[in-house]
């Protein structure tokens, strides 16, 4: 329903057409097209080195592009940088700040630079950093630094936020508090462009998702659309000997697979569940467990990208992947 609402008053906030970025001989971004509407949370997914940060930094005006067209809020990010920056909130990948400055001082500094009256305590509370408000940046933990980055991105009440892996390296609680902030930004009508390696995060937060691989977009749409389009159909899984598979194949027109002690039946509709279970009952073959399984965004992602995001990232995604 949210989505249809958004469709009614489409305002294109970010427009990317045929964007190309070369680093010497390396084509990091290879002709991508994207259109992001006002009020969307848009997740940008892709394996390491896919070109996410490069794209985001071009949108933020931090890098010039090789060719193509880019507009953010109707401005050219590279040329109109100083004008655009007033309406942007940014957490760069690996956010860094001055060692000796505290989060509270940093927020006040940013507020002054942007000419905003900001309540530093309220902002730090929002990102759950109030306990460390007066500690120097150099003494903060990685996750706390990341939260400070988010606090700074909020100071100027931006219309568009670019969050490059805002939750990487955070504990589950901290990650949830950042999700909370992203949801509240969305409810305030702000546009959020988010890159992440956590597919669970994209599935939970994003209105729409784009998957980028080797500088090319390989899928776009809502997580449900992508799963529907690229995912396999729902599967009924039984813990049973392979002879059950043979029995089912002889009675059913559905694809059946047997592996180890598991028999998988691909389902076309909900009625198929009852048909399969009735046949199982009739076969008289003993079985120990039954479940249904649907592809997650992660399953689709892995299929599209052809590998896991990166061995180090499997932990958290695997966590999110188990439903």
């Amino acid at each position: 329903m949210q989505r249809t609402e958004a469709l009614i008053n489409l305002v294109e906030v970010i427009a990317i057409r045929k964007l190309v970025k070369d680093y010497g001989n390396l084509r990091a971004v290879d002709g991508i097209d994207l259109s992001i509407q006002k009020g969307e949370v848009y997740a940008f997914l892709g394996p390491n080195g896919a070109g996410k940060t490069t794209t985001v930094e071009i949108l933020e005006g931090l890098r010039p592009r090789t060719s193509g067209e880019v507009e953010v809020l109707g401005l050219d990010p590279w040329k109109d940088n100083k004008k655009l920056i007033r309406q942007l909130g940014v957490i760069p990948q690996d956010f860094k700040f001055f060692d000796k400055i505290t989060p509270k001082e940093a927020v006040a500094f940013y507020a002054g630079l942007f000419g905003k009256r900001a309540d530093a305590d309220a902002i730090l509370k929002k990102v759950r950093l109030e306990d460390k408000a007066s500690d120097r940046y150099e003494t903060l933990s990685g996750g706390q630094k990341q939260k400070m980055g988010l606090a700074l991105a909020l100071v100027n009440e931006p219309a568009v936020l670019f969050l490059d892996e805002p939750t990487t390296g955070l504990d589950p609680q901290a990650r949830r508090s950042i999700w909370e902030v992203i949801r509240s930004l969305r409810s305030e009508g702000r546009t959020v462009f988010l890159t992440t390696h956590y597919l669970e995060e994209a599935q939970l937060l994003a209105d729409r998702v784009a998957i980028i691989n080797h500088g090319k977009i390989v899928a776009t749409g809502s997580p449900e659309d992508i799963i529907r389009e690229h995912g396999r159909s729902e599967v009924l899984s039984l813990q049973a000997p392979p002879k059950l598979a043979d029995y089912l194949r002889s009675k059913l027109d559905l694809p059946v697979r047997a592996e180890d002690h598991t028999v998988d039946v691909e389902l076309n509709s909900n009625e198929d569940v009852l048909r399969v279970l009735t046949l199982v009952q009739q076969s008289g073959i003993p079985w120990t467990g039954v479940s249904t399984r649907q592809d997650t965004l992660e399953d689709v992602f892995i299929r599209l990208v052809g590998k896991t995001t990166e061995s180090g990232d499997v932990g958290p995604t695997a966590l999110g992947g188990s439903k």
Binding site: L62, N81, K82, I85, P92, D94, K96, F114, G115
Partner: peptide, 14 residues
């Protein structure tokens, strides 16, 4: 190296 100029460039400071 520490990308602090990048961080400042994301504000109106010139």
């Amino acid at each position: 190296k520490e990308k602090l100029f990048r961080q400042l460039s994301l504000t109106p400071l010139t």
